[in-house]
């Protein structure tokens, strides 16, 4: 028996919004420690890794490890039927071929449940090596989203250059070029508005705008985002989900031939 309850469906909607741009379907691996998901996008350029800890749920029970393959468009249809303030409970029997989403209104006067067929998906787990990154940039998530959106207009790729002075995002194309430089903040009223840079050595890497923009669909999950970079390895874009876990996106760089 598997049962996981979240006080607000809003958070699950945000999690789904953060992955459904990149993935059509995905396997949710449920265990005692929580719900994990790891999946590559169709073109095998990026990897999504989601972790929702069991202690982040209002109620969590998982008697046996369970892998639930879900069609994310169908899951989105179901979540659309919930109000953000509704409680959501995800339920499945051991070895079941369906999962049930139950929504309860705050006053408990409306209870709805939706059953969805599960899919058998080919599980391809990738081993992600531990890496000491040359640069880790932390910045407000809305700022990162804004930069990606703005630069997409000027080119297909963004060049990210990180030095101890700051981080620069550049794009260029037929119409011209664009450069955005962020310096480390010296003092901020709110911690989430800070830009900070941890640098071992400077890095310059090129990434496809399209994927960066998809990653920023996670912006509503977290006020801050971190970008971890080293030469010639995938970028890690990480959003901490308060009191629940994290979502990480890995993106393979573009390499000059």
């Amino acid at each position: 028996m598997f049962e996981a309850r979240l006080i607000s469906s809003g958070i699950l909607k945000k999690v789904l919004d953060a992955i459904k741009d990149l993935l059509n379907e995905a396997t949710f691996d449920c265990s005692d420690s929580g719900i994990q998901l790891q999946a590559m996008d169709n073109s095998h350029v990026s990897l999504v890794s989601l972790n929702m800890r069991s202690d982040g749920f209002d109620k969590y029970r998982c008697d046996r490890n369970l892998s639930m393959g879900m069609n994310l468009a169908n899951m989105a249809k179901i979540l659309k039927c919930a109000n953000n303030t509704d409680t959501v409970t995800i339920k499945a029997q051991d070895n079941a071929d369906t999962v049930t989403f139950m929504f309860e209104s705050q006053n408990q006067e409306k209870v709805s449940d939706y059953e969805m067929k599960l899919m058998n998906l080919d599980q391809e787990h990738l081993g992600i090596p531990e890496t000491d990154y040359a640069c880790i940039v932390r910045m407000p998530s809305h700022e990162f989203a804004r930069i990606c959106r703005d630069l997409t207009q000027f080119g297909e790729s963004v060049v990210i250059t990180c030095t101890k002075e700051g981080v620069r995002f550049s794009a260029s194309g037929d119409s011209g070029s664009a450069n955005i430089k962020l310096a480390q903040t010296s003092s901020v009223d709110k911690e989430e508005e800070a830009v900070s840079i941890e640098m071992q050595e400077p890095v310059t890497l090129t990434f496809a705008c399209q994927y960066l923009n998809s990653f920023t669909k996670a912006t509503p999950l977290s006020p801050q985002v971190s970008l971890s970079m080293s030469a010639d390895v995938p970028l890690v874009v990480e959003y901490q989900i308060p009191d629940l876990g994290h979502i990480r996106y890995y993106l393979a760089p573009k390499i000059e031939e």
Binding site: V45, L126, G127, P129, A208, P234, Y250, A252, K254
Partner: peptide, 14 residues
């Protein structure tokens, strides 16, 4: 001209 790398060239299947 830059080439998009594949994520599988960095992470191996387990």
């Amino acid at each position: 001209k830059s080439t998009q790398k594949n994520i599988l060239s960095y992470f191996s299947k387990t």
